[in-house]
Amino acid sequence: MIAPGSEAPDFALSDQDGQQVSLADLRGKTTVLVFYPLDFSPVCTDQLNVYQEVLPELEAQGAFLYGVSVDSAFAHKAFQEHLGIGFPLLADFHPKGQVTTRYGVYNDERGHGQRALVMIGPELDVKWSHRSPSPLEIPGANLIFDALEAQ
């Protein structure tokens, strides 16, 4: 997976509302890309829900979250409403998994992303990255706060 110190790989993806979000839009702030396998799989649900609970505090520390999976913008829209979450979900849908692959967290065998967190700094360099040892192990919100504290 992408290592701290690297330049963040470029991307331009559609969010749940069809708005394009590109790497350049993240300049000047701290961003955490939350790669997760698929919308509507029950484990992911808890992951994004718990991040939502601490979102105000992440934002107070200057960090903004984006979820990323291979699902389409339409599925993301439904999933976002289903979860009641407020942060954007980016569709790495076509070509499928291209951005996830650039960040080194695509699971070719299964055809979806691995569970991973990538923190991108204001200068668009990778500050921190974390990949779950298994899809069942969900990276705790505490890890994001640890990474923010270490900056």
Partner: peptide, 9 residues
């Protein structure tokens, strides 16, 4: 719970 890494109930 958050600090201890709780992510599901």
């Amino acid at each position: 719970g958050v600090r201890a890494g709780v992510m599901t109930t």
